[in-house]
Structures are given as C-alpha cells and as structure tokens.
Design a protein around this nucleic acid. Structure first.
Lengths: 221, 221
DNA sequence: GTCTATATCATGATAGAC
DNA sequence: GTCTATCATGATATAGAC
C-alpha cells in the first residue's frame, strides 16, 4: 500500500509552484501545470476547484509553516528574555532570517518558493493579497509589538515604515538578482560557493537591514 | 490645426500605463486599453505593432527621461567635486531621490508610473528585463563607480549587494503599501498630509538606505 | 478518482473598406 | 489614420464514460 495516493495533489502543487515562479501566474496555463506534473488536465479542477484556488494552496502550503515557525521562534525568544525587551537584531533575525532559512530547506520549497514569494508580493495586488493579509496579520502584529518594545526611542510610525523597507529589501534579495545580474559580473565570481551563498546572502542582508533599522531618524526640513 | 493629431498615441500610452499598473500586463487586454483611451482596437497595432511593443514604449517614455536626469545630476555633482569622491548621501540621493521626485511630477507619470515600475521590476523576468538592462546599463555603471570611490574601505562586492538591497527597499516603498496597509492603521493617520507625504517618504527612505549602505560589514562565521 | 472530449469564451492580431 | 468584421489560438471549466 506504500504511500496513500494523494500523490496527485502534491505533484500538482509542486509543478504549479515551479511554473508560477518561472513564468508568473497568468502566463502559466493549466495545460502546462498538468503536463509537467504528469497528471490529467481535469485533475486540477477536481482537486482544487479552480486555477485561482490552486494558486492559493500553493502559497498556503508554505506560508502556514513559515508563520507558525516565526511565532514559535518569537515565543521562544520572549520566554528566554523573561519580560525584558528583545534586541532588534534578534527580532530581525527571527522574522527575516527564518524566511531565508526556508531557502536552504528543499522540503519547504527552497529557493523556488522563496523567489515566487518575492515576486508575487510586488505584483499587482490581485487575489494573493487577501490571503497574505489573513495569514500574516497576527504574525506582523506580534513582531511590530516586539520592535516597539525593543526601540522605545524610535517613533512607532517610523518603525512601521522601516519594517516595510526591510520587507522590500528582502523580497528583492530573494526574488532573484535578475535585474542587476545582467549588469554585474558577480555571478561568475560567485560560482565557487553556490552552496554557502545562502549563508552569505543572509549575513549581508541582515547587516544591511539592521543598519537601516537603526539609522538616525530623518529630519523633515 | 490646433495640436497635430498624434493625440491617439499619447492616449493609448496613458491608458496602458494606468491599466498595467492596476491589473498587471497579462490581465490587461487590448480591448480594455483602447476602451479607456477612447480609440479603436486596431489603433494599438497600427501605432505600436503589438501589445508587447506598446508595453516597452510605456516604460521607455518615462525611463528615457529618468536616466538622462540621473546622469545629468551625477555629472553636476562630480563637476562640482573637482575630482574628490562624492559623499554616499549625495550619490544615494541622486539615484533614488531623482526617482522619487518623479512621483511628484504628474507630467512625468507621477505615482502611477512609479508604482508600475516598482511592481514590474519584481515580476517574472519577462520581456521588460531586456529593456531595463539596455536602458540602465550605463547609468548603473556610473553610479557603481561613484559608490566605489565614495566607500573605498567597503569591498566592491558588498557595495553591489547593498545597491541591490536599496533598489528593493525603494521598489517596495514605491510599489505601494498594499501588503502592509491592511495590517497597519497608518493610512487614516496619514490622511492629513497627503500632499507632503511624498517628501516624508523620501526623507524616511533616504535615512534608511544610508543606514543600510553604511552598516558594519557582515561577519561570515 | 481518473480520463477523454468538448463547451464556452476571451484574447491578440489582421485584412480590407473608407 | 481609422474603423468593422473576423480569424486563429489558447484559455478555463465541465459533462460523462470508465
């Protein structure tokens, strides 16, 4: 009896994740998806109901894990701090570092999903926005509150903006380097350490984010 | 004889810019575009040849101006510096500040184009990537060189990464705040100064970018 | 649950009258 | 330059046999 045969669902999700990443949602037809998955065209509508519902499940499968993990890490940090505010670096690492560590885990979608995520978040606010809002709401609230406590001297409005900027820098870093890659020669130079490149990216991004988060307050003049 | 009647071309470009921003490239049909522009369906193919060529012109119209302006500002700064390296803040403001100042200029497309740009740069690497590479190549080279001179102690590779991160934060800031707006209550609070909000955003973003650009170097351990 | 075959529709593009 | 009418294509979704 091996594995119970819900294989089809998984195969469709994997193919869709990959193809959405490569060509975008609109440009990916259900024929492409079912073709790559090796299943029948009608299977998508049987298992998911529609193409849009399929896309939602593609994201939900990964985001459920990510957000649970983010909350778990934050709970852990706060328990250990015993009521004292966390350091900004801890919070940033818990939120964005957890995201980046997904990239190293192929079972969690690896870079494929992360790049898809980065691209989708910038895209037209479409159907995915609602899902994000629903999924992220409590997590973002918790992390915002932690940042407020960690940076009592920074106006809350400023923190929210900087959180937003950090999201953008991270999305871009993840979404792939296509825009600059063409202009830059880093790809050839970087070929040697493609394994540890995720770790390098993480270290680089973290120091950038923290530098921005703790920058001197802007002067409105 | 009034205005010579190339009105149609402009109307199509304006409508396409607006609709691409609102719904994305794929989801915007030529019937929608010509409908909003008040011109005939066949006019797009007559004037531009194809939908894809139209999209390229939508970007080219704005980017030609933006990149020329960026070069002009950099030339000006370097002439004034008389061989001495520029300050990082000057370079960042010349590159990203010029971009943000487009948002205040309705004749240059204003926020509409800027949001479209922010969204498209994150999207699937499609046809627009080639145009960007062609348009941006010399400008990015010039700015990279200026940053190298301004930050001689920072490894060049690190500068390139941070430039990339800055692009991401800026794209996101521009592309609109949809993702966080739902979670945050800043919209109601911010209603009062919708005029000067562009100036506030610019000041906030600039201090964030500079903080990140000058952050302590990451430790790879 | 899975597949074949098909219904229904919207799209980008073009030919040709004016 | 502008319009109408239309073509060819590829999309999602579904009905019904197995």
């Amino acid at each position: 009896m091996d594995t119970p045969r819900n294989d089809t669902r998984q195969r469709i999700l994997d193919a869709a994740e990959h193809l959405f990443m490569a060509h975008g949602y609109d440009a990916t037809s259900m024929r492409l998806i079912t073709g790559e998955a090796g299943v029948n065209l009608a299977a998508v509508n049987y298992h998911f109901g529609s193409k849009e519902a399929l896309a939602q499940q593609v994201f939900k499968r990964r985001l459920d894990w990510l957000n649970t993990e983010r909350l778990r890490v934050l709970d852990d940090l706060e328990a250990r701090a015993k009521g004292k505010p966390l350091r900004p670096s801890q919070i940033v690492d818990a939120f964005f570092g957890t995201l980046l560590r997904m990239a190293a885990d192929e079972d969690r979608g690896g870079q494929t999903f992360l790049r898809l995520l980065g691209r989708t978040m910038g895209g037209p606010a479409g159907f995915i926005g609602a899902l994000f809002a629903e999924e992220y709401a409590d997590v973002v609230e918790r992390y915002k509150a932690a940042l407020f406590r960690a940076l009592p001297d920074v106006p809350r409005e400023e923190i929210i903006w900087r959180f937003h900027f950090m999201l953008g820098a991270t999305s871009y870093a993840i979404a792939g380097t296509d825009a600059l890659q063409l202009v830059t020669d880093w790809k050839t130079k970087k070929k040697k350490d493609s394994d540890s490149s995720a770790a390098y990216l993480q270290a680089r991004l973290m120091s950038f984010l923290l530098g921005g988060l703790r920058a001197p307050l802007p002067q409105f003049d």
